[in-house]
């Protein structure tokens, strides 16, 4: 049953997990750490915004760990992972016989987080009807189990997180405005990894050290492979980097991680821009053909230039274009070639 599995996977994580700390020396992380310490000293509701994998749960854990609630439970809940119809009983518990299958009464996650912290991840996925109930918990500090008319006092600090613009969800009517303002008392923003690239080498060393403890063996990485990791845009952020390094350590025999072991998209460097597929399908809403053609043209031109090592003549030939036509297209696509390296680029 989904409820049981959610609980059992969450359980060991309530205890302080030492490997979960915010790693980084980038000025933005240094400042974020100062904010975390300050927020931990208060007891207010917090809303953490950041892309998926950027470390929102780690920030929540640090706030909890530094707070006066640290000896109590930290209960992480992924609102997107619990089926809507189970969410209320999962959060607030249920009475025996409250619904079919509820043979025994059960405490909800809020009760588990009593005097501790409950972390509501992907809060935007919470159904509206439950949002109303959460608002009541925030206002009155009591929860009501499904099938029960008794309100039970609960003292859980709420830290919510979202990877989408919650205000936009409010405007669309998908998220309650009153709840939004209630959660937003202390907003915290976690930047994506590509905006603090200088932390990548630090993170790589950290994860390799941790893998050494977990799996034994010495692991190191060549300078060239490190450069590739540093150049990549990490759409999945720190978690993607963590998973990749774990996979490399498990799959590879040798103790040294080299460029050849890296996945293709990473070796090709700038995936983030290039990877977005061109939608070559005519949906019901139609397409902007001119924009599509421009996009394709831009990519081909860029690729040809790269293949030709910046030589325009050769790049034009690769595309079956006259040099003058190619140059005109270059200007239109906004490809800036350097004046430094003369005619060839």
């Amino acid at each position: 049953m989904a409820v049981a599995s959610q609980l059992s996977t969450a359980e060991p994580a309530w205890q302080s997990a030492p490997e979960h700390t915010l790693i980084g020396a980038h000025p933005t992380i240094v400042k974020l750490r100062a904010l975390i310490e300050r927020v931990a000293a208060t007891d207010t509701t917090v809303l953490i915004t950041g892309e998926s994998g950027s470390g929102k749960e780690i920030v929540a854990r640090e706030i909890h760990g530094l707070s006066r609630r640290s000896s109590r439970n930290f209960v992480p809940v992924n609102c997107a992972a619990i089926p809507n119809e189970l969410m209320e009983s999962e959060m607030f518990g249920h009475q025996r016989g409250a619904f079919t299958g509820a043979a025994l009464p059960r405490h909800g996650l809020f009760s588990l987080a009593d005097r501790g912290t409950i972390f509501l991840d992907e809060i935007s996925e919470m159904p509206l009807q439950l949002q109303a109930k959460l608002l009541r918990v925030l206002e009155d500090g009591v929860v009501r189990a499904v099938g029960s008319d008794r309100a039970v006092r609960v003292d859980a600090r709420i830290i919510a997180a979202t990877n989408t613009d919650l205000m936009a969800a409010v405007k669309k009517g998908k998220f309650r405005e009153d709840l939004f303002y209630r959660l937003q008392v202390v907003p915290v923003v976690v930047p994506p990894l590509r905006e603090r690239r200088s932390d990548i080498p630090l993170l790589v060393d950290f994860f390799l050290d941790r893998n050494r403890e977990r799996f034994g063996g010495q692991w190191s990485i060549t300078r060239e492979a490190m450069v590739h990791l540093w150049s990549y845009d990490w759409p999945g952020n720190v978690r993607e980097l963590e998973n990749l390094l774990e996979r490399l350590v498990i799959l590879n025999e040798g103790p040294v991680i080299d460029v050849e072991m890296l996945p293709e998209n990473l070796k090709n460097g700038r995936c983030h821009l290039a990877e977005a597929p061109i939608a070559a399908e005519l949906g019901e809403s139609g397409v902007d053909l001119n924009a599509l053609v421009r996009e394709l043209e831009g990519r081909m031109i860029n690729e040809a230039l790269k293949l030709a090592g910046g030589n325009k003549q050769a790049a034009a030939r690769l595309l079956g274009l006259k040099r003058t036509t190619f140059s005109a297209k270059l200007r239109r696509c906004g490809v800036i070639t350097s004046g430094n390296d003369g005619e060839s680029a």
């Binding site: 000025p27 974020l32 930047p191 860029n302 230039l305 490809v335 070639t337």
Partner: peptide, 27 residues
């Protein structure tokens, strides 16, 4: 890397400005 694509240039500048905006919000 040159040749520079205008869109890439703008995107990379925006990434740093977004980082600064996050910084300011946290501050």
């Amino acid at each position: 890397a040159k040749p520079i694509v205008r869109r890439e240039l703008a995107e990379r500048i925006h990434a740093q400005l977004d980082m600064l905006a996050a910084d300011r919000a946290n501050f």
